[in-house]
């Protein structure tokens, strides 16, 4: 049973919002059973950054996605439509989320006790 569903919709490079949203999800994992759903431009966070990020210039926070299991976060989802829209199916991804159709997403939203949007 998902207690908290975190919906992440910000692209990674345009602002700090994606990075801070990930921090919020990690904080949530300390208190309850959480799930993460990447939607829209938020799915772009999953693309493996191609350029080496200079230390301190911009934090490559996405590598933290690979540590989610250590934080007991096992339910990581992506919106299938968004994946199609952004052509992510053949991209190298940091982690592979479970893809959900719109119907699946709707069911997840209904099944979660609380939904937090970022």
């Amino acid at each position: 049973m998902t207690e908290l569903l975190f919906i992440l919709s910000h692209p990674p490079g345009a602002s700090v919002y994606a990075q801070e949203a990930f921090d919020a999800a990690l904080a949530g994992s300390a208190f309850s059973n959480i799930a993460i759903l990447f939607v829209g431009a938020g799915c772009l966070q999953l693309i493996q950054p191609k350029l080496a990020v200079e230390a301190h210039e911009r934090k490559d926070f996405q590598r933290g996605f690979k540590a989610l299991a250590d934080y007991d976060v096992h339910d990581v989802y992506g919106c299938e439509d968004s994946f199609k829209q952004f052509g992510l199916h053949n991209q190298a991804l940091v982690i592979q989320p479970t893809l959900l159709t719109r119907v699946d997403i709707s069911a997840r939203l209904k099944g979660a006790q609380r939904v937090l949007c970022f």
Partner: peptide, 18 residues
């Protein structure tokens, strides 16, 4: 090593898992 790999400073419960 964990910080270098994931960019995360794990909280106590995660540290214990590791």
């Amino acid at each position: 090593a964990y910080y270098a790999q994931y960019g995360l400073s794990p909280p106590s419960r995660v540290l214990m898992t590791l």
